[in-house]
């Protein structure tokens, strides 16, 4: 029987140098769903995303995406399956213009006018900065460009690491709108986020990590409604953490 999950991690271990970071991560993400990956700093969230992208090799376990075993592939091959990755550092090319950064997110066909319009409608400020180097943008504008680059081409899955980090509330609202639009278009999204308000606004599902393992899986709505669970899993509750 075909796996109902688009992305499935089973018993994934990752070592970085001599450090054992992931201790058997099990995770299933359904097609078209938006999963928030939560957890305190150092819990292994970024490592999980990087392992999915092949940027760090899993030392044990299996990662499958739409039937392909990702553990056997290198990052370019993984990306070509239709996965866009926005790292915590945003991964922009500071010396290249906004246009060139977007162009790198496209396939051989280059920038399609309709997709550019879509990105520029969501992030109008990028239009004014079109020919400026990405290094000259503000933090919020950079994050918009990073998300924009991930959406100029149709992707099956988007993997985003802490997009709200260090951004003003107005910018975060724009990012939430962009991610919601992507989700509405059917893109599956795996999102690491520390901003609980953003997580609660977007997430269908939630997985909480601690010490390199998944310690809780459920719906975002259930976690958002259960203060005791939030305190137990995250050491916080919704009202206190923005």
């Amino acid at each position: 029987m075909a796996d109902p999950a688009l992305l499935r991690l089973a018993g994934v271990h990752t070592h970085i140098g001599r450090y054992h970071i992931l201790h058997g991560v099990d995770l299933a993400l359904g097609e078209g769903r938006l999963m928030m990956l939560l957890g305190r700093n150092g819990a292994g969230k970024t490592t999980t995303l990087r392992t999915v992208m092949g940027l760090w090799r899993a030392s044990a376990g299996e990662i499958r995406f739409a039937g392909s075993a990702l553990t056997a592939l290198d990052p370019p091959a993984i990306a070509r399956l239709g996965i866009a990755y926005v790292p915590e550092t945003m991964g922009l090319f500071a010396g290249l213009s906004v246009r060139e950064n977007l162009l790198l997110g496209t396939g051989p066909g280059g920038l399609a006018a309709s997709r550019i319009e879509e990105v520029l409608t969501l992030f109008p400020v990028l239009r004014e900065k079109w020919d400026l180097p990405a290094g000259a943008l503000s933090g919020g504008q950079k994050q918009m460009l990073a998300i924009g680059r991930a959406m100029v081409e149709t992707r099956r899955m988007l993997v985003v690491d802490e997009p709200s980090k260090g951004l003003a509330p107005g910018v975060i609202d724009q990012l939430i709108a962009a991610l919601a639009a992507l989700k509405a278009a059917g893109t599956t999204i795996l999102l690491v986020e520390q901003n609980f308000a953003m997580a609660a606004a977007l997430g269908d599902d939630v997985a909480v990590m601690d010490d390199g393992r998944i310690v809780h899986v459920g719906t975002m709505a259930a976690l958002a409604a259960d203060t005791a669970l939030q305190v137990r899993l995250l050491g916080l509750h919704l009202g206190s953490h923005q």
């Binding site: 370019p76 990306a79 090319f93 997110g105």
Partner: peptide
């Protein structure tokens, strides 16, 4: 040019 700046990200693209 992008690869000279950040090789890993170019591969992730």
């Amino acid at each position: 040019r992008a690869g000279v700046e950040d090789r890993e990200m170019v591969e992730a693209l």
